[in-house]
Design a protein around this nucleic acid. Structure first.
Length: 513
RNA sequence: GCACCCUUCAUCUAGUUGGUUAGGAUGUUGCUCUUUCACAGCAAAAACAAGGGUUCGAAUCCCUUAGGGUGUACCA
C-alpha cells in the first residue's frame, strides 16, 4: 500500500505566524515536493474566542513571501477536500464523535466548570499531584458512565450543556513510531479523558485534527514538539475510529529556542535583542502597533528560508547555501535533529549577506526603491544600481544599504571629527582647494580617470596618498567607511563632488586647528 | 510534582555498521590584500554535560546523575 504523499500545515489563526511555524510549513513543503505529493494549508480555527483579525491573511501572505506555497487549501485555491477552514467543517466532526460514543470509546459529560474545578481542588487537597478528569475521577463525575441511562437521555433531550470526552484506558502502554525520535511510549494512566467535542458543538484540536487528517488523506503529520505529549491520544483516536491502517506517520520537530537564556523563542527576544520576529510586517489591528518583518527590513526570502531550514536540519556534506529546489532534493526527515535549536540571528545575517552578494544590482536597486522614494528622492535606476554594486558587499540586508550609504542620496549629516583631526591640518587647505579645482576641470569623470588625475596631482605636489585620500573620503562621506573613493566620486558626479568638497573643507576650518 | 523528549566548540551542525589529528559554517582574534570599511584568501583559539560500566578500542552501546525543553485546558 503506497499512498500519494499528502502533508498539511495546520496553524490556528490566533496570531501572526512565527519562525517556528514557518519552519514547520517549510519541512512539510519540502517533503511534499520531494515525494511529488500534496501540501495542504488547513486553518484550525475551532476556538472562536481566540480569533485574531488579520491572522489568517497574514499566514497566507507570509507563506507566499517565503515561497512556500501549498497547492491546496485556504488562500491557495482550495481543492478536493474543501472547505479547509475547520469552523466551516463543524458538521463533519459530529459523525466521528458519535461513532466513538456508539462503540464505547467516548462518553457524554455534563459537569459544569465549577464542578470540575471543585474536583481538582479536592484532589489537590488530598495530595494528588496532577488532578485531572481521567479513568479514576470520571467515576465520581456527572457523565453518561455514572448517570442512569434515562437521566442521560433526559439531559440530552432537554438541551443541557455537555461535552464529549474520550474514555482513556486506565493503564495501557501506547507505543508509537516517530520519524525523528524513533520509538516513543506513554502509559495511559498519565493521560486524561480529553474533551473531543466542546459544549458549543465545536471539536477540540484533537478530534478535528484526527478527523481532518483522515478525511484529507494525510500521510505524514509533521508538527512541533509541543504536540508530542498528545500524540498518544491521537493514536488511540485512530484506533478507536477503526482507521489505524491509514494513520499518518508522525514527525515531531524540535523547538526553536531563545538566542540566549532558557526557553523557546518569542517575539520579545526579537524586540530585546534587536531583530525582526515575523516574516513580513505585522500590524496589530487592535493596538495599531506594527512589528517590522524580515521582508521590510530588506532580507531576502531565499536567505530566510535557507536559514530556517538549517535550524534543526542538516543535509550533511557541509552544505549551507541552498536554493529551495536544492533543499527539496536533499531533505529527509531522518536528518532532522532531535534537540531544540537556538535562534542565531548572526547566522541569518551572514547568510543574507551571501544572498545579497549574489543578487543582481538592478534587482537589488528595485527592491530598495520604496525607501528611496520615501526619503523624498527621485529614483534614478542607473544611479541606484551602481550604488548597490558599491555598497552590497558591506551590508547584511537591503535596508542597511541606505543607512550605510545615505551620503549618496543626501548631504553628509555627521563627520568623523576624531579621524579628521588626525589626518588634516589647516595649512593644507590651499592644497585641497587646488585639488578641487583640478577635479572640477576633469572631463571624463570615470573612476579610472579620476584616479589617474588625482594620483597625478599627488605626485606632482610630492604628497603622500595617505594625506590626501582620507581627507577626500571624510569630505565626501563624513566617515572612513565605504567604497573606494574614486568609485564614490564617479557615482556622485563631478558637480556634487566639487560642491560637497567645498562645503566640507569650509566646515573643516571650524573643527581643526 | 508527574509524564515524555533532548544533551558534540559561544551558536547552527557533520560524525547514522564503535577505530577520525572529532570536520564545516557563523561569531571572535591574527595575518595578507588595501587610501578606509568591506570583500576575498590564509591562519588561530574553541566541543563530545558528569560519573560509572561493556570493549583491545566509545562522541558512537548500557546504567546513573545533572542540566535543558515540552506537556499536564471545553487553547491550539
Amino acid at each position: 500500500m503506497s499512498r500519494r504523499v499528502r502533508v498539511r500545515f495546520a496553524p490556528s489563526p490566533t496570531g501572526p505566524l512565527h519562525p517556528g511555524g514557518i519552519r514547520t510549513a517549510l519541512y512539510n513543503y519540502l517533503l511534499a515536493k520531494q515525494q511529488g505529493g500534496d501540501f495542504v494549508l488547513r486553518i484550525e480555527d475551532t476556538d472562536q474566542t481566540r480569533f485574531v483579525p488579520g491572522a489568517e491573511e497574514f499566514i497566507i501572505a507570509a507563506l507566499k513571501w517565503c515561497g512556500i506555497e501549498p497547492n491546496e487549501g485556504v488562500g491557495f485555491g482550495d481543492g478536493p477536500h474543501a472547505p479547509y477552514r475547520q469552523s466551516e467543517r463543524k458538521h463533519l466532526y459530529r459523525e466521528f464523535a458519535d461513532k466513538l460514543i456508539e462503540n464505547g470509546s467516548a462518553y457524554y459529560a455534563f459537569d459544569t466548570e465549577e464542578e470540575i474545578e471543585q474536583m481538582r481542588q479536592n484532589l489537590t487537597a488530598q495530595g494528588v499531584q496532577s488532578p485531572s478528569y481521567n479513568a479514576v475521577t470520571r467515576q465520581y463525575m456527572k457523565n453518561s458512565l455514572t448517570l442512569p441511562q434515562d437521566e442521560v437521555q433526559k439531559r440530552l433531550e432537554s438541551g443541557a450543556a455537555y461535552v464529549i470526552r474520550f474514555k482513556m484506558p486506565r493503564n495501557e502502554e501506547v507505543k508509537f513510531h516517530d520519524e525523528i525520535r524513533e520509538w516513543v511510549s506513554f502509559n495511559t494512566s498519565q493521560l486524561a479523558d480529553a474533551v473531543l467535542l466542546k459544549s458549543d458543538g465545536m471539536p477540540t484540536y484533537h478530534l478535528a485534527n484526527v478527523s481532518d487528517d483522515y478525511m484529507m488523506q494525510i500521510t505524514h503529520v509533521i508538527r512541533g514538539e509541543e504536540w508530542l505529549s498528545s500524540a498518544p491520544l491521537h493514536i488511540l483516536l485512530y484506533r478507536a475510529l477503526g482507521i489505524e491502517d491509514v494513520m499518518p506517520k508522525f514527525a515531531h520537530l524540535p523547538l526553536i529556542l531563545k538566542p540566549d537564556g532558557n526557553g523557546k523563542l518569542s517575539k520579545r527576544d526579537g524586540d530585546r535583542l534587536g531583530f525582526p520576529f515575523y516574516a513580513i510586517n505585522w500590524k496589530n489591528q487592535e493596538t495599531g502597533d506594527v512589528s517590522e518583518g524580515y521582508r521590510e527590513k530588506g532580507f531576502l526570502p531565499e536567505a530566510f528560508i535557507n536559514f530556517l531550514a538549517l535550524l534543526g536540519w542538516s543535509p550533511g556534506e557541509n552544505r549551507k547555501k541552498m536554493s529551495l529546489e536544492e533543499m527539496i532534493q536533499l531533505f529527509s526527515l531522518d536528518r532532522v535533529h532531535k534537540a531544540g535549536a537556538r535562534y542565531d540571528f548572526n547566522m541569518l545575517k551572514s547568510l543574507n549577506h551571501e544572498y545579497l552578494m549574489a543578487t543582481d544590482d538592478n534587482v537589488l536597486a528595485e527592491s530598495i526603491r520604496p525607501q528611496i522614494e520615501q526619503m523624498g528622492m527621485v529614483y534614478n535606476e542607473k544611479y541606484v544600481t551602481e550604488f548597490c554594486r558599491l555598497m552590497k558587499e558591506r551590508a547584511h540586508f537591503a535596508s542597511e544599504l541606505l543607512t550605510l550609504g545615505y551620503y549618496f542620496f543626501e548631504e553628509v549629516k555627521e563627520f568623523d571629527v576624531e579621524t579628521l583631526k588626525k589626518k588634516y591640518k589647516k595649512e593644507q587647505r590651499p592644497v585641497f582647494d587646488d585639488l578641487v579645482t583640478v577635479i572640477s576641470n576633469q572631463v571624463d569623470f570615470t573612476s579610472i580617470e579620476i584616479e589617474k588625475n588625482i594620483k597625478g596631482f599627488i605626485a606632482e605636489r610630492q604628497l603622500k596618498i595617505g594625506e590626501v585620500m582620507p581627507v577626500l573620503r571624510l569630505g565626501l562621506a563624513g566617515t572612513m567607511q565605504g567604497p573606494a573613493v574614486f568609485d564614490m566620486m564617479a557615482l556622485l558626479g563631478k558637480e556634487k563632488v566639487v560642491s560637497r568638497l567645498q562645503t566640507s573643507l569650509s566646515y573643516f576650518e571650524t573643527v581643526v586647528v
